[in-house]
Structures are given as C-alpha cells and as structure tokens.
Design a protein around this nucleic acid. Structure first.
Length: 122
RNA sequence: CGAGCGGAACAAAUGACUGCGCCUUAUUAUGAGGUGAGGAACGUCCGAGCACCAUAGGGCAGAACGCCGGGUAACGCCCGGUGGAGGCGACUCCAAGGAAAGUGCAACAGAAAUAAACCGCAGCAAGGGCUGUAAGGGUGGAACGGUGAGGUAAGAGCUCACCGAAAUCAUUGGCAACUUUGAUUUCCUGUAAACCCCGUUCGGUGCAAGAUUGAUAUAGGAGCAUUUAAUAGCGGCCCGCUAAGCUUCGUGUAAUCGCUAGAGCCUGUUGGCAACUGCAGGUCAAGAUAGAUGGUCAUAUAAACAGAACUCGGCGUAUGAGCCGUCUCGAUUC
RNA sequence: GAUCCGCUAGCUCAGUAGGUAGAGCAUUUGACUUUUAAUCAAAGGGUCCGGAGUUCGAAUCUCCGGCGGGUCA
C-alpha cells in the first residue's frame, strides 16, 4: 500500500530551527503560525514551538502532543512528492480550542502554504 | 443541629481502535508480548549520598544554628518533655544561650532615657541663691520593685512586716531542661530578629559532576614565565602542598557509560509513651536527551493542583471529593 | 541545574546604623494671557507586593509565600 512512509519526523537541533526561521515564509491563523521552507530532499520534517506565554509545563506539553497528533493525521493526506521543513508556533489562545478545531486550522494553514491538496486525496 | 479542634488515607478504573519511549523475543523491517510521571514530580529553602579537585591540611575572615532528652546516614527535620504566650475549651504557637565583658540606639513627649532634679518638700540665707531629698505631680512602652508602719528638719530598703522579682547555696522530684521548699544576698530600664560575647557545625564545586572511545583542530589574536617569580588547582585572604609551560579570547563540541535495587516499599512482629528501631517473609521492568502517556469512543459523570531529567531524607507552597474521633464548646429535645 | 536582584503616588525613582513617607513628571484648582502653551502659586493622591514574628514602634530587621527580571554552564 501507499501507507508506507508516514512516520512523523521532527526537527531537533537549534540550528535547524533558526535556519527555517530566517529563510522560511510564514502564514498565520488565529491560534497558530506556520513557517515553512521548501527544499529538494529529506521529506517533510516538522518542528513544534510552544512558548512560555502559553502556559505552564503541563499545558505546553499537552498542546505539543495534540499538535503532533494532528500532524500525524494530516501527513497521511498530504502530497507525497513534496519535501519541506515546517515549524508550527502556538499562540496564547490555543489553550481554549478543541482538538477538532486545531486540526481544521492546521489543514487551512497547510493549504495556504501549498503543501496540501484535496484533489489528490480524492 | 451549629461552630470548632485534631488525625489518617485516596488522588479514578476497565475495555476497544489508533499513535509514542524503553525492554524482551522472533525475524530483518516489521510483527508479538511486557511496561511507562506525582503527592506534591513544583519551589530550590535545608540535609546527605555520589563524582572530581591534595583521601581536604594550619590560621584569619565569613556563614548557619542555639531550652533539655531522644530519633536519624545527616539536618535548620521529626518525636517526647520543660518554660513562656494565646484560647471558655479541644488545642495551637514560640530563632527559647548571654544585657552583671564592652559598644551603640531609645523619635515625639518629658526636668531627666541610664543619668538624674522642672515644680515640690525641708534646712541655711532670706532680693536672686546654696545644701539635702527622691514622698507627691505630670510625660512615656520604660523613670534605681509595691503596700503599710517606724524613722527624719524633710525624706529615702535607712529599718521592719507582708508581697513580687533575680542570683547563689542546700533540699524534693527528674537522665536533663526545670521544679518543690528553705536560707542568704540583691532589686540592677529595654533592645542581641543592633554590633558583639560564649558554645556547636561548616574545604570547594556540582551529573552540563566526572569516566571512556572517536573525530576535528593542535589554525588564529592577546598575556605571563623559563628557576623561585608569575599563573593555575584554590572562585574571600594568608601560609602550605602540587604542576614545567600555562592562562585567556575566539572556533568547534559526537557517541557510550554515569542512569536507576535504594539509608527502597509492604505485611507481621520485638523494644519504645512516641519519632524510630531489630528480626522474619514478601515485593519492585519510567529512564528520555527539542526530551516518551496523545486522539476517538463505551461504562449514567470525569471533574482539583499539576509533568520525571543523578538519587534519597525533610521543609514550604498549590489543590478535589469524601471519611474518622471514649475530642471541645454552644443550643434544643428526651 | 545553580545563582543573584527588584517590587514605594497614575508613571519614573529617592528613602541606612528602625521614630510623622518624599522628589520630578502627570492630574485638579487659581493667577498671568484675547485664548492656548510656557511660567508662577496651591491642592489632592500611598493596605510602602502579601502574611506572620521581633520591638514601645517596622517601608526599613527576621522568616514564609507571590509576581517580575537578570547571570553562569
């Protein structure tokens, strides 16, 4: 089947983050911001950033886990050929919203960035 | 029934699908099985283990602690007592050595704040004044203890009686702090959570400690020295010890170990008022490294505070619903 | 992980051996001016981050918290 390479690969090094921050393009929504940098190889790699403004340790942890889960679900439906580095940055009001809304918004952001197409999935 | 006081314990569970870390196993990129945050993981306020620096040395400085006895690996923690403070009470709280080693401070008020004399009282002089006095007045948180009598020129622990306080000695009880009673002496402001004195304790740095392996570089700038100086270990200072090149800026900084079985937890029991402890039996797979527990449901309903990063013992703080007691006070009824 | 500092009027800050809490700006009122600004004069405004303790008395000393910020690796 095509369900082969859908493991979530995360950005780890501080260098990688700063690189994307400097070179990448951004698009924003109410509850989060996406910064993306398209490259030739390496597949889709994602980083998540939740600052201290959002909440205490346990709150930040929960939000990051939810965002990871969202990405995992969306990764299946995405264009397979593309490869890019993404960073999702959580904003303060993200604490209020539910999981479904979060996924909706994430899909909107990816579509905006041109990494997500519904036609392909159909 | 109302208002309190004290105490202990819990911190959702199970199942399904789907994901993540680690371990085991089969087989070679996946499958199967197991397992996976807290009572505070938090704050980082103390005490240790462990590691390295001289297996930690001498002195000064500095810091912490401070009733007594016990517990503990240790503690600034805990338990039991003593004394004091608060509460009708159950009970709670207390950094609780020394003010008679010395220094400082005590605003305003008041004559005067640690030393005395403003008004007053008495004697002498008699216009101011000099001497004695600490009864009375007023101020203040505090004015050489309080009341009464004697005494005196007027007064005063000057003397006596009673009361109060402190110290010393003896004595009752207690391991002790302390306490009971008696005698003697004294009556002295408070503050040490002001400096300080006395006693006790403390070497420094912290798992990013440190060890091993490998790679890269031994590029470059600056400083000091080559023989008793400087620098570093040693980050308060001096002595002392060690090192033959060292320090600093800059660049670069991977993997493995350390890394989880420990002063562990539970049950019974010995000793003890208790903290705790001896013995016996049982039991214990979180170990990540941008950092693992999420998502969707079901069980009527899931809710508080909150997320491990070397590990323990305390303390402090946050917080949900309920429970217990020969407990206390008040009201009512029998 | 370790360590240090701050919190005082609406804002920015003073306030040391503990004794009535102050300055500048801002605000309000009045004067000057045709009016405003500037200037001058006056006034109001403080649980001294919170709670305990020591003391006759605490912004100040001690302890325990809260919030904010810095430094080192």
């Amino acid at each position: 089947m095509e369900k082969k390479d859908i493991r979530l690969v995360t950005l780890k090094k501080n260098k990688e983050f700063t690189f994307v921050y400097h070179r990448g393009k951004s698009c924003a929504a109410k509850h989060m911001v996406l910064i993306y940098f398209k490259n030739k190889y390496g597949g889709i790699r994602t980083g998540f950033s939740v600052s201290k403004k959002v909440g205490k340790a346990i709150v930040r942890n929960k939000i990051r886990r939810r965002m990871k889960e969202c990405m995992r679900e969306l990764l299946v439906q995405m264009v397979s050929g593309e490869s890019a580095n993404l960073i999702f940055i959580a904003r303060a009001p993200i604490v209020e919203i539910k999981y479904a809304e979060m996924r909706k918004e994430m899909r909107y952001l990816l579509k905006k960035a041109g990494l997500f197409t519904i036609e392909k999935n159909k």
